[in-house]
Amino acid sequence: MSIETVVLAVGTEDEERTERLAEEAVAVAEPADAEVVLTHVFGDAEFESVRAKLGVDEDDEGSTPDAVAERHTTTRAVANALSEAGVRYSIRGRVGDLADEVVETASAVGADRVVVGGRQRSPTGKAVFGSVAQEVMLSAPCPVTFVRAVAA
């Protein structure tokens, strides 16, 4: 099975997690000459907050989720890493439920792989709070690579 399209789910990550996600996306996409679809999903309140921090009025042309995602620090850092590795990419911004939007994007672009990051959590934490990465793994239309955060 060849890999042509990889969806990489990004959010507001710390620098180390951003680097790990970028490295994994490169490791999956580069050998296959696949395109990475950087997908930054914002919650409703987060989107409004980020848009305000960027000084973008909601009526501006640059106020779309795609435009805001392109300007977000995390997305830019991953995009730079992909560029340096010679990996083709596009950026998509989405607003809504994180897991649902990643799965919908993977379906819409015909992804062959999804790459998601996550934190190590206790079984109780997973049961009480759920897990975006777990929901993506269970619902994605293709295989999912999970990038675990390094324990501090």
Rank of each mutant, 00 (worst) to 15 (best):
V28N: 01
A99N: 00
A127W: 15
A99D: 03
E101L: 00
I3P: 01
P65Y: 12
T18K: 00
A29S: 07
V28R: 08
T124P: 11
A99I: 07
V56R: 14
V36W: 00
D44P: 15
V7C: 05
E70K: 10
V36C: 06
V7W: 01
P143S: 11
A67G: 04
A111N: 09
R76Q: 08
V56M: 10
T105Q: 14
E58K: 14
A149Q: 07
H40E: 09
A106C: 10
V144N: 00
D14S: 02
V147R: 03
E19P: 01
M1A: 15
L138H: 07
A32Q: 13
E19Q: 13
Q134S: 15
E70F: 06
G93A: 10
G93L: 11
R76E: 02
V7Y: 02
A52E: 15
T73W: 00
R17K: 13
Q134R: 09
Q134C: 10
A9S: 13
A34Q: 06
A81N: 05
G118T: 14
Q120C: 11
R51Y: 12
P141I: 11
A45P: 06
C142N: 08
K126E: 14
E35C: 04
P65N: 14
T145G: 06
V10Y: 00
A52C: 15
A9G: 15
G86L: 00
E23Q: 13
P143F: 10
R17D: 03
C142P: 02
R92K: 14
S63Y: 08
S139C: 01
A108C: 09
T124C: 03
A52T: 15
I91K: 05
E30C: 11
V28F: 02
R76P: 02
E101V: 03
L54I: 11
T74D: 04
G130D: 12
A81Q: 05
M137D: 00
P123F: 07
P31M: 09
P143G: 08
P141T: 08
E23M: 09
A85M: 10
S2F: 10
A77N: 05
T39N: 03
D66P: 08
D60F: 01
F129C: 13
V50T: 07
V37F: 09
G86D: 00
V109L: 08
D57M: 05
T105K: 06
G96F: 13
